[in-house]
Design a protein around this nucleic acid. Structure first.
Ligand SMILES: [Mn+2]
Ligand SMILES: [Mn+2]
Ligand SMILES: [Zn+2]
Ligand SMILES: [Zn+2]
Lengths: 138, 138
DNA sequence: TAAAAACATGCAATCTGAGTGCATTATTGA
DNA sequence: TCAATAATGCACTCAGATTGCATGTTTTTA
C-alpha cells in the first residue's frame, strides 16, 4: 500500500498540497467529477490551479477525461494499473439523466468493433445514457 | 422521389428559403457539420437563424446531433427512415483526428451491451477516434 | 549554501460555442 | 384584409475552457 505522495512521485508529479488534496478528493469519489465539482469540494481554491492540476494528472496518466455528452468535461482516477500497464482499458461510461452523475463502468469493456476499410481506430468512447442504479431504485 | 419542400412539410417544417438551402447543404455533405461549417457554407447568413434552423430540424426528427468528443456539436441528416420508423438507429460515429471530420457509419450499429444491475439504458453513443479512410490513404 | 533554473500558483483576461430576448418581417388562414 | 402565428435579425448573455504574466516555491547546480 503506497502513500499518495509516492503515487504522485511515481508519475513524475510533485506532491504539492493541492495535488495531494485533489488526488484524495478524486479517489473518494464514486463518480467522475467536473472542474466545478472539484472546485466546490475545496474551501480556498483557485480554479485555474485546479484546472492545471487536473490537466497535469491527465497528462501524466493519473486520470482520464470522461466525455458524457453534457458538454462539460469530467475526470476520474485511472484504475491503478494492476501489474502490467494496459495501454488504456476502454471501459464504458454511464451518464444518468436523472441525477446527472457519470460513472466509470471499469469492469465493462467496449466490445470489439469492425470498421469499413480504411478506417483506423485509435481510441473509442462508449457512452450509455439512462437511469443509474441509485436513481432506478433497483 | 420527393421534393425537399415535401420532405420538410412532411415533418411539419415550413419550407422557407434558408431551410431549403440548409437541407440541401446537409444532404450534399458526406460528414457531420458544425454550426460553423454550415455558416461558412452560406454567403449571407445569420448564425442565429442557422442555429434555430438546425435545432428545428433536430426537434422535428430530420437531423441528429453528433457528439464527436471535440466539444463542438455537429449535425447530420437522418437516413430517410426506409419504410418503418426505427425509433432511432444507434449507429456509430467516427472522428478523424487528422482531418477533424466526423462520419456517420450508419451501417454499423452499436452492439448489444450488458450493464450492471440497476442501470437502465435509454440512449447510447459509440464514438471511434482514429484516422479516416481518406486520410489513411487505404 | 547561495544563486540560477525550473516549476507551481493566483489573478486577470480572452475565446468559443451555445443559447435567449426582443423588435421586425413574412406567412397563414379566418 | 386583418389578426394570429411563425421566421428572421441583431444584440446580448453565459459557461466552460484555456492562456499570459507576475509572483511565490522548490530543486539544482556550482
Ligand atoms: Mn472512465
Ligand atoms: Mn450519425
Ligand atoms: Zn442517477
Ligand atoms: Zn481524416
Amino acid at each position: 500500500m503506497v502513500s499518495i505522495e509516492q503515487v504522485l512521485r511515481d508519475h513524475q508529479i510533485r506532491p504539492t498540497a493541492i495535488r495531494l488534496l485533489m488526488y484524495r478528493f478524486l479517489k473518494d469519489s464514486q463518480v467522475a467529477l467536473s472542474l466545478n465539482d472539484i472546485e466546490s469540494g475545496f474551501d480556498q481554491s483557485e480554479r485555474t490551479t485546479l484546472y492545471r492540476t487536473i490537466k497535469t494528472f491527465e497528462r501524466k496518466g493519473l486520470v482520464h477525461q470522461v466525455d458524457d455528452g453534457t458538454g462539460v468535461a469530467k475526470y476520474a482516477l485511472d484504475k491503478p494499473a494492476n501489474g502490467k500497464q494496459s495501454t488504456q482499458d476502454l471501459h464504458l461510461h454511464f451518464h444518468c439523466t436523472n441525477c446527472n452523475e457519470t460513472t466509470c463502468l471499469t469492469e465493462h469493456k467496449i466490445p470489439h468493433i469492425s470498421l469499413p476499410t480504411g478506417f483506423i481506430p485509435e481510441d473509442m468512447n462508449l457512452l450509455i445514457k439512462g437511469v443509474c442504479d441509485k436513481c432506478s431504485g433497483q
